[in-house]
Design a protein around this nucleic acid. Structure first.
Lengths: 170, 170
DNA sequence: CTCAGATAGACAACTAGGTTGTCCATCACC
DNA sequence: GGTGATGGACAACCTAGTTGTCTATCTGAG
């Protein structure tokens, strides 16, 4: 492996490192949360699912709707919803007033996992508050809000990571 | 869609929102960088590629090496390297002193894209510095370092997002 | 009242970036 | 010189997306 090869030319990295830092923070939180949720009996729950379910709770009641809310294709949304239904987090019934639609809803179990998930994230945040101090963490959050806006809070377009495309119908 | 459905029970979200903020920050930076790099003629460059190339520069000179450095399987590393080679960012030649190995190296074009990428990230960071002030941005970075450690700077295990598994040989 | 156009959803094929498992060739060492 | 570790190739699979195509149904204009 020839370890210890010199970094050949410095190449300042603060911009890219900042991105890495943000990713690291996100991953630390999310990975921790997934581990904790698995331990609480939700082994098959994935971050994506949370976004989809929140979209449903926020008012999306069809797969296409969820797709629009999350800025992913309706097909992708339908796939996610299919696994959510298969795992009992979401129900899907034909819409009596529109035969094209399947009306989807978050089940009791779905609400449970969301609630637990939030508690878990709250715990993790509390742990960060310990190592950083409440003021500093609040400061960090405020800075991030200034940079990326409130957009994330009502999660328009997560699109996850570097997918670079926006869904378009045909 | 029945817009305006009430948020039914408050469910504090600050922990999860913090994660979303971090993700949002990362995506803002990376998406911006990819757009800018594409505009500069590197249309086929992906964030993953940067990690792999940095691993190579840092001393990994075989696919298995890269895999170890990035904590992904050697197969995954080999795939990434294959596209890097196909696109001219990396070269691969049989190792004269070990017939099993393919000795890989970052090409001139590869170094170019890395250099440009860093410049792009630097620009983006400068923009953030404008909207936030140098002190506040430095503060934010310091806080993140405290939380996630220096680990990210020499990128051990990006593993990207929520993949939850670590590579293991057989 | 009909018909054109929009919409919902299903199905298929594809991509990126990973994972396992299996296998062979080569190397290093006792 | 044989045994075990290593490098790499190949194949099959997974997740979270993408496009494209197709049908069924609804809606609004005339």
């Amino acid at each position: 492996m020839s370890i210890g090869v010199p970094r050949l030319l410095v190449m300042s990295r603060s911009g890219a490192d900042l991105a890495l830092l943000l990713l690291g923070g996100f991953r630390t939180l999310v990975d921790g949360a997934m581990v904790e949720l698995a331990a609480r009996g939700y082994e098959d729950f994935r971050p994506t699912h949370e976004f989809a379910m929140r979209a449903i709770i926020a008012g999306a009641d069809s797969a296409s709707d969820v797709g629009r809310r999350l800025s992913i294709s309706k097909q992708a949304a339908a796939k996610t919803i299919a696994v959510l239904v298969a795992r009992g987090y979401v129900s899907s019934d034909p819409d009596p007033s529109d035969a094209r639609r399947n009306r989807i809803q978050v089940t009791a179990r779905g609400l449970d996992v969301l609630r637990e998930g939030e508690a878990v994230f709250e715990d993790l945040r509390a742990r960060w508050e310990e190592t950083l101090g409440a003021a500093e963490l609040a400061h960090l959050e405020a800075s991030l809000v200034k940079l990326v806006g409130r957009a994330t809070v009502d999660p328009e377009a997560p699109g996850w990571v570097g997918q670079d495309g926006i869904a378009g119908e045909k």
